[in-house]
Amino acid sequence: MPPRDPVITVFAPTGIGEVTRGADLAEAVLTAAAADPSGPLQAGDVVVVTSKIISKADGLVRAGHDREAAITEQTAATVARRGATRIVRTRAGLTVAAAGVDNSNVASGTVLVLPEDADARAATLHAELTRRTGLPLGVVVSDTAGRAWRLGQTDHAIGAAGLRVLERYAGRQDPYGNDLQVTAMAVADEIAGAADLAKGKLAGRPVAVVRGVAHLVQPVGLPDGRAADLIRPLEQDMFSHGTREAVLVAVLTATGQSDRYEELVALDGPALAAAVLTGTDLSADAEALVSALFVRT
Rank of each mutant, 00 (worst) to 15 (best):
D143P: 04
A145V: 15
G146A: 08
R147G: 07
W149V: 11
W149P: 08
W149F: 15
G152D: 04
Q153K: 11
Q153G: 13
T154A: 10
T154S: 14
H156A: 11
A157I: 05
I158V: 15
G159W: 00
G159S: 04
A160G: 02
A161G: 00
G162M: 00
R164Q: 12
V165D: 01
L166W: 06
Y169G: 08
Y169A: 14
Y169K: 11
G171E: 08
R172P: 02
Q173S: 14
P175F: 08
P175L: 15
Y176W: 15
G177F: 01
L180Q: 08
Q181A: 11
V182S: 14
T183D: 10
A184I: 11
A184Y: 02
A184K: 11
M185Y: 07
V187E: 07
V187L: 07
E190P: 01
E190C: 15
I191T: 11
I191Q: 05
A192E: 05
G193M: 04
A195W: 01
D196H: 12
D196K: 13
D196M: 09
L197W: 07
A198Y: 02
A198P: 06
K199E: 03
K199L: 05
G200C: 07
L202R: 14
G204Q: 01
G204A: 01
R205G: 05
V207C: 09
V207P: 01
V207H: 04
A208P: 03
V209K: 06
V209A: 06
V213T: 12
A214Q: 07
A214I: 00
H215V: 03
H215S: 12
L216C: 06
